[in-house]
């Protein structure tokens, strides 16, 4: 039997409608244009796209923060557009946002992590247990009594992830979690996300515009103007350098260099992802 998809979107459309003062429709902007998306449990999915490509709108649908104009979206077998499923959907698909400051509610780290479980009515004793586990899973346990204001950006984002983890979701959607961080913070957050995927088996949907971050994903979707325009493994996506550049995405230096060298006539394989791969390819060319 086929395993049930944790997220299944079919023909998803979302239109932002701007009205004038009398309520007449002034402009319609199609943010999602017939998007299909299947995610299996335990997968690490990346969604790439420039600002305004519709990727954040898609993320908000998965968490039932926005309802589709057209099409269907099932999250863990539940129809996300139905009012009565909203709380179940939000619990099974947690969400981490871009700005680390604007999603931390409490003035003490552990109280913030406990906020989600409190909302869904988890008994007190279990909240403490969940808070401890979640903080441990992102390596922030020693900061449990600290004020979030004193933490670095990467640490704040890890607290936000712990806050979602404490709700025991099956899937976490991260909407550009590293866009406001420096390279150190970016590394910290990605490491934590990867560990959750590998160790806790949580399905990850990472939304980003940094291509370097998707190298380890199982599957990559590229969005542009509300449509899914490319999909495949990182390697197959990265081998289409010119297409990616058309979609306003920058290719990692190594991949770009490999592509340029290939264009100049060197026999190098497609879709080089890492430095080691390129070194190996170039040395074997040198030996010929």
């Amino acid at each position: 039997m086929k395993e049930q998809n944790i997220i299944e979107a079919k023909g998803l459309v979302h239109e932002y409608i701007r009205r004038d003062e009398e309520g007449n429709v002034e402009a319609i902007q199609t943010a999602l244009d017939h998007v299909n998306l299947d995610v299996r449990p335990g997968q690490f999915i990346a969604i790439l796209g420039h600002n305004g490509s519709g990727k954040s709108t898609l993320a908000k649908h998965i968490n039932a923060l926005l309802a589709p104009t057209e099409g269907t979206l099932y999250v863990d077998g539940k129809d996300a557009s139905k009012e009565e499923n909203v709380w179940d959907v939000r619990q099974s698909a947690g969400m981490v946002f871009q700005n680390p400051d604007n999603q931390i509610i409490a003035s003490v780290v552990e109280e913030d992590v406990g906020f989600g479980p409190e909302n869904i009515g988890v008994p007190t004793e279990e909240i403490w247990q969940r808070v401890e586990e979640s903080l441990k899973s992102v390596g922030m346990l020693e900061y449990r009594t600290h004020s979030p204001n004193k933490l670095s950006g990467g640490q704040k984002q890890r607290v936000a992830i712990a806050g979602v983890m404490a709700m025991k979701p099956k899937c976490i959607v991260l909407d550009e979690p590293t866009a406001m961080l420096d390279p150190l913070g970016r590394k910290e957050v990605l490491k934590a996300v990867r560990a959750l995927n590998k160790q806790a088996g949580v399905t990850i949907i990472l939304i980003t515009h940094y291509m370097e971050e998707v190298v380890n994903a199982d599957y990559v979707f590229v969005m542009d103007e509300g449509k899914v325009v490319m999909k495949g493994t990182p390697r197959s996506i990265f081998s289409q350098v010119e297409e990616l550049q058309e979609y306003r995405l920058s290719v990692p230096q190594i991949t770009l260099l490999a592509h340029e060298l290939k264009k100049s006539g060197l026999p190098i394989p497609d879709g080089i992802l890492t430095r080691d791969e390129l070194v190996e390819a170039l040395l074997s060319v040198g030996q010929q």
Partner: peptide, 19 residues
């Protein structure tokens, strides 16, 4: 939005971490 995403829906049916 972040509070809603974490299932906040007012005080009703809420438990406390530090009662």
């Amino acid at each position: 939005m972040a509070m809603e995403a974490r299932c906040y829906h007012g005080g009703h049916g809420r438990t406390k971490m530090k009662p």
